[in-house]
Design a binder for these strands. Sequence first.
DNA 1: CGGGCCGATACCTCTCGGGTATCGATCGGC
DNA 2: GCCGATCGATACCCGAGAGGTATCGGCCCG
Lengths: 279, 279
Amino acid sequence: METRELRYFVAVAQELHFGRAAQRLGIAQPPLSRAVAQLERRLGTALLTRSSRSVALTPAGEVLLAEARAALAAVEAAERRTRRAGSTDRPGLVLAVKAGASAELLAKLLDAHAAEPDAVPVDVLLVGIGEQGQVLRDGRADVALLHRPFDDLAGLDVEELGTEGQIAVLPAGHELGTRPELVLADLDGVPGLPAPRWPGPSGVTSGPGPQVRDHAQLLQLIGLGRTFAVLPDSVRGQLPEGLRAVPVADAPAVTTVIAWPPHSRSLAVAGLVRTALRL
Amino acid sequence: METRELRYFVAVAQELHFGRAAQRLGIAQPPLSRAVAQLERRLGTALLTRSSRSVALTPAGEVLLAEARAALAAVEAAERRTRRAGSTDRPGLVLAVKAGASAELLAKLLDAHAAEPDAVPVDVLLVGIGEQGQVLRDGRADVALLHRPFDDLAGLDVEELGTEGQIAVLPAGHELGTRPELVLADLDGVPGLPAPRWPGPSGVTSGPGPQVRDHAQLLQLIGLGRTFAVLPDSVRGQLPEGLRAVPVADAPAVTTVIAWPPHSRSLAVAGLVRTALRL
DNA sequence: CGGGCCGATACCTCTCGGGTATCGATCGGC
DNA sequence: GCCGATCGATACCCGAGAGGTATCGGCCCG
């Protein structure tokens, strides 16, 4: 199987429409139809059920969609990492961090790493919530900080860096902000304060409230009184003036972890991880 | 990048010889030279240093070799898993087990799974030591039993099933077999009894003794008085007549784990894992 | 210094990926 | 119930590029 065929199939499987998929791929519809049909012939399996009015995935098609995405990410990663290994000007590491999260830990880590004798330059790549795994898997980053149980750690090698409780971050002057402590049930369905939505481990977003990409957006929306959030303790240090932080007794503990792609044989990654574990 | 290019590059990188690589790929040498040169042009990096008498990998080439292997395994996995999902006759799972290891646990697991209401048929794939990760990654198996710290768990999702001590397995009548307990140092450099070699997590094999692929081979060689082994407690149940088993006090504990490929969304895998965790 | 090994280059062929035109089926509207 | 619109499949053509053969040019060895 060639990556071209996989790209074509993924496009059709996502769009569920040959015409639109062809347009997205920048080719005409007939070659796309033929390519997918040929893929099905070679695999000996129907991947799509077509009824001239609609296209749907067969169970085998579902399997191939998931597997093809992973395989294409691996190929992309190969390309990107090789390019970076070859370009002499930047031999450093790329560290992916959720924008706005773990700021204090990140600062300490970068300082400690820079003080190492064999320090390699580190670029910080700020990504949206839940995107760290993706950038790690497709080669845009070499290491990432993520948070259990929120982020998807599947397929990554991981070391734990620390655990902390969670606090509710509320708009200035909100009645709940005056209490000394909350439980999750207090925050369930507060009138006029919907929970925000962000990309979860399963890739989908859930909840009724506003859609949010990173912590900065989230804090801004809280400042505007449009939502609230339950976040790790360590965000206290970066709360804008006026927001209220209240411990949430029964919120699950958050573990910050450092992760890297499984077959990374890079000494530079190992060095950064070692530094992180010493903090 | 197409998988064809990656396959070509991997062949050359392994053989370090364009002629032989071309032969292995079933093509002529000139197209291979051109394809690799074109890949280098597209990546903007030299991958190989060629000197008409020898071929060597550049650092970027080393990176691409590792990444390309992973990517090609992912593509193969996509193909195999889709084929199996499509062929109606065998909708079951493939469970990879080191030949001869964890026999008791395996029997219990298969029994318990068969007793489940939604039992899916399970094929057992016996593989050589250290090959479980590979067959999981390239789609030949869906689940595997492996043993920490011996097997390479990088990139796999894992649940622990149990921990046990280790025993030394010695030929009948060997003097060490009469002692009530040993320490690793006792086994270090026993005259006439070299330690066996098998594929380790790093892929290489080390040690001076005979080369071994699985437990059955290993036990046979011990029976012949040619080597010894330090193995998990649970092999006691399958020792052939005459072999001596002696606990090793300071050997690292072995944890048996059940593992599956990270993006497996399969309900069948989840069911088998749940059954295993109940044992 | 000459022969043999090996990768690169030149040049040819033909497969196959991609484009246009069109068909056939299905669904919605009148 | 018919007509038109939509959408995937089919027919047919063209050109890029993958692969083959012949050959060159550098390098080590005898």
